[in-house]
């Protein structure tokens, strides 16, 4: 109690590690271009390109500067929202990405808003009523869903809800001016696919975390003090479950952000993932870099958030000796 709390120091340390990781990852993404065999300009423009067009291309993409200079330039640009030009069609990447990134995050948020409360709730219920039919149903059905490829789940949903019942469209064709209700309707199937996949993981992990917690001696002690079961769970078990559950959520959100790539392709949804896959096929490296940077940064930030919440919710660190 006399010493200062180590909490701010720990959080700062974790933040610093997060920033460092982001920097290293951005460097790796940037240096990928250096690994391209041969000359980039020739690679992109083809063998038939004239010396002038090659020179103009190099000039335009700053390829004549040394790599560290270009990295700093690229990083500075990325931080201010300028992601450079697409190598394939020479349009500004920020423009290409803007709407698509928005679409992707909307879809991920849509899925998360349904999946997180549902999965955590069901996971807790399954843990509390361990061995019940509900628990058995949840654990066997989730094992199956985890094992399925995303597109398998997607096509089954399409077959059922789009082709057979015709309740929802099979293509998630959103347009920029679309209203929210319409958008939610159109993107229901891709969202549901992600909900199913992510929920299975999240439920299993939440259940495991709570089952561990319920076996702890202090939870048993609370029962032996004659405390009501509901209160034991609400007061003694759940507050200590915050850190593990938050970790579970963050891990799954990170997973969701990546899983979105496949789901977007299945439903032909105009998002970042779709663009990334197309650009990989076209080998449009600057666009790939930008998209990878956005995905990686989101992923790193989510993990960072989980760790910090874990630190903050640890009573031993909150109340040092």
């Amino acid at each position: 109690m006399t010493r200062m709390s180590p909490l701010p120091k720990l959080i700062l340390r974790r933040l610093a590690i997060g920033v460092l990781t982001l920097l290293i990852v951005s460097a790796i993404i940037f240096w990928a271009i250096e690994l391209l065999p041969g000359d980039i300009a020739t690679e992109v423009l083809g063998q038939s390109a004239t010396a002038e067009t090659l020179a103009a291309f190099r000039d335009r993409f700053g390829l004549n500067d040394p790599a560290p200079v270009r990295y700093l330039h690229w990083l500075g640009g990325a931080l201010t929202g300028d992601l450079g030009l697409s190598m394939a069609n020479q349009r500004p990447i920020a423009q290409l990405l803007g709407d698509r990134a928005f679409n992707t995050f909307i879809l991920a948020a849509y899925a998360a808003l349904i999946a997180v409360p549902l999965a955590v709730g069901l996971g807790i219920v399954a843990a509390l009523y361990r061995g019940s039919w509900l628990d058995r149903f949840i654990s066997s059905s989730t094992l199956a869903v985890i094992s399925f490829p995303e597109y398998f789940v997607a096509y089954i949903l399409i077959l059922l809800f789009a082709v057979h019942l015709q309740w929802f469209p099979s293509l998630a064709a959103v347009t920029p001016g679309m209203g929210l209700a319409q958008r939610l309707y159109v993107t229901f199937l891709p969202a549901l696919t992600m909900v199913l996949i992510v929920m299975a993981h999240m439920m299993r992990m939440t259940r495991a975390a709570i089952v561990n917690l319920l076996a702890l001696p202090y939870v048993e002690m609370a029962h032996l003090k004659g405390i009501r079961r509901r209160r034991v769970i609400a007061v003694h078990a759940l507050p200590n479950a915050v850190a593990p559950i938050v970790t579970v959520i963050a891990l799954n959100l990170a997973y969701l952000i990546v899983g979105v790539v496949l789901v977007e392709v299945v439903f032909v949804y105009p998002g970042l993932g779709q663009l990334l896959v197309d650009s990989v096929a076209k080998r449009d490296i600057t666009v790939v870099q930008a998209a990878c940077l956005i995905f990686a940064a989101t992923y790193i930030l989510l993990n960072l958030a989980a760790d910090i919440i874990g630190i903050v919710s640890n009573p031993r660190l909150l109340h040092p000796r």
Binding site: I28, V258, L276, V280, I300
Partner: peptide
């Protein structure tokens, strides 16, 4: 390993496959 794991594998794989074909 920490750094490699900080990048989602699918994204990393896509980046590398762009380069290697």
């Amino acid at each position: 390993v920490d750094v490699l794991m900080a990048i989602p594998s699918l994204i990393f794989a896509l980046l590398i496959l762009t380069i290697t074909g």
